[in-house]
């Protein structure tokens, strides 16, 4: 199974209405109690400048977060949490529910696992397209090899 740190990335590739609809069905009759107040707002992105390795703020991004305690109809209890780059609390709650279901293998975990597989496929398609753009525009300098110009990084001392 995909590691937990990538569940949000995979699941958030799915259409949000599909995610919310499926998780609502899976949790019908369950008790959902927020462990912290679900929130939507902004996160601030810190990045390391690669020249001097100093941190600075690149800018903000929307963020929704949720942390739930779930009790199933047969009394099983689990916690799930999620933060996602979105401004919709409902999506964060659906992701937190998936986190709880899958981490504790609550009823319906196979369905969530399938959703993750589907999301992962969508992510892989996007990554593949990006790589195809690179492959299509890769520069072939081999024709210049005969010129004797030391313009590679391996030749920086020459």
């Amino acid at each position: 199974m995909l590691e937990r740190t990538l569940w949000v990335s995979a699941l958030s590739a799915l259409p949000s209405n599909e995610l919310i609809e499926i998780t609502s069905k899976l949790s019908e009759g369950w008790t959902l109690r927020p462990k912290s107040v679900p929130q939507a707002g902004l996160g601030m992105l810190q990045i390391k400048d690669s020249a001097f390795h100093q941190a600075f703020y690149l800018g903000e991004f929307p963020l929704a977060s949720a942390w739930l305690e779930v009790t199933t109809l047969d009394g099983r209890r689990a916690e799930g949490a999620a933060q996602v780059m979105d401004d919709c609390i409902e999506i964060a709650e659906a992701l937190a529910l998936c986190d709880a279901i899958l981490s504790a293998q609550l009823p319906g975990w196979e369905k969530v696992s399938m959703m993750i597989e589907k999301g992962l496929t969508l992510r892989n398609t996007i990554n593949k397209e990006r790589k195809m753009m690179l492959a299509r525009t890769r520069v072939d300098f081999s024709l210049l090899d005969d010129t004797g110009n030391g313009e590679g990084l391996n030749n920086v001392e020459s």
């Binding site: 810190q46 390391k48 963020l63 977060s65 990006r130 300098f141 313009e151």
Partner: peptide, 30 residues
């Protein structure tokens, strides 16, 4: 109008999923 919820840890652009990459210093970059 939005509350600030978190700050990320310091992210490293080495992890970027690149779509374009050039150098005018060297032709053969790693």
């Amino acid at each position: 109008t939005q509350p600030r919820l978190v700050e990320t840890p310091v992210l490293d652009s080495k992890n970027m999923r690149v779509t374009r990459r050039i150098s005018s210093a060297f032709k053969d970059i790693p």
